[in-house]
């Protein structure tokens, strides 16, 4: 396992563009901390974002994982191209001739992707912890460590998304086209949703089915955190609206994403086994 990771590390780390993208990704993850510095001071209006409660435990787990998930696109580019480049340079053929089995090949890519997700999760955890310790109004361990489900959901979400990228890289074999395909897939999920609603004549059933789609299921894992903010809640209350949002991470949401992960990995392996190189 270490050997497979090392092989992939050599391939990635010697590629300048991959190296730059990976480094900027982790720098961006850390830069979430900079949100704390957002301050408006315009005459009578004083606004300091850090004092709006976004860094309060346990809310911060929800907030940072939600924001950090946007940066995953950086790694998506790296992952799609690390797969597609093997086809473009035909190095996949040479790897297999040199004695890497097809299973080992897919496994080395999957392990890399899992490591990416693991390191990202660790980063987000540490950044959130530090921000929370500095700005949170509550520092009791019981409160601090509640809602850690978001960290787990973040990990699962990244693994799911990255394996999708791997699969697209193998399927399309060209990084630019694979990324285009990813965007196309996003649109297709929405179109399919509209189409289902029209066929079934019910938005609720269509939405329930849509929750099973790969990208939708990944985004379901972490709901948007903004309507949980006190400020937003109180504004809504004044307007006579009341949000009753279920923002928790559900076990079945995790299960759906894990199922997709398994399908994508098996699909990549099946494609590789079926194809002549």
């Amino acid at each position: 396992m270490i050997r497979l990771l090392q092989i992939e590390f050599i391939k990635l780390w010697n590629n300048r563009i991959s190296k730059i993208l990976i480094l900027s990704y982790f720098i961006l993850l850390t830069s979430i901390a900079l949100v704390a510095a957002i301050k408006f001071d315009i005459g009578p209006i004083k606004f300091h974002l850090a004092e709006q409660g976004i860094f309060n435990f346990p809310y911060i787990w929800h907030f940072t994982t939600y924001i950090a998930a946007f940066f995953k696109l950086f790694l998506a580019i790296v992952i799609v191209s690390m797969m597609a480049n093997e086809y473009v340079n035909k190095t996949i053929k040479q790897n297999l001739i040199d004695g890497l089995s097809k299973k080992e090949f897919v496994l080395s890519k999957f392990l890399t992707v899992v490591s990416f997700a693991l390191i990202s999760t660790l980063f987000v955890f540490v950044v959130s912890l530090v921000l929370g310790l500095v700005y949170s109004d509550y520092n009791e361990p019981a409160i601090m460590l509640s809602d850690l489900e978001f960290i787990a959901a973040f990990f699962v979400k990244l693994v799911g998304f990255f394996t999708l990228c791997l699969f697209l890289g193998i399927l399309v074999k060209r990084s630019a086209f694979a990324l285009g395909f990813l965007i196309l897939w996003m649109i297709v999920e929405q179109l399919l949703f509209g189409f289902l609603a029209w066929i079934l004549a019910s938005w609720d059933t269509a939405a329930a089915i849509k929750d099973l789609f790969p990208l939708q299921s990944m985004s379901n894992l972490i709901d948007e955190p903004f309507s949980r903010l006190n400020a937003v809640q109180s504004v809504a209350a004044q307007m006579g609206e009341k949000f009753a949002l279920d923002y928790h991470v559900h076990w079945y949401e995790i299960l759906i994403v894990l199922a997709w992960t398994a399908i994508f990995i098996y699909g990549s392996y099946a494609l590789l086994r079926k194809r002549d190189l």
């Binding site: 590629n15 040479q94 004695g99």
Partner: peptide, 24 residues
């Protein structure tokens, strides 16, 4: 087989190190 396939952005030594790792 046919054309030589290596990682274009890596040096000869780096490419061969990778092959060593694959061949154990």
């Amino acid at each position: 087989i046919e054309r030589p396939n290596f990682y274009p952005y890596m040096t000869a030594t780096q490419n061969l190190k990778l092959v060593c790792m694959i061949k154990e």
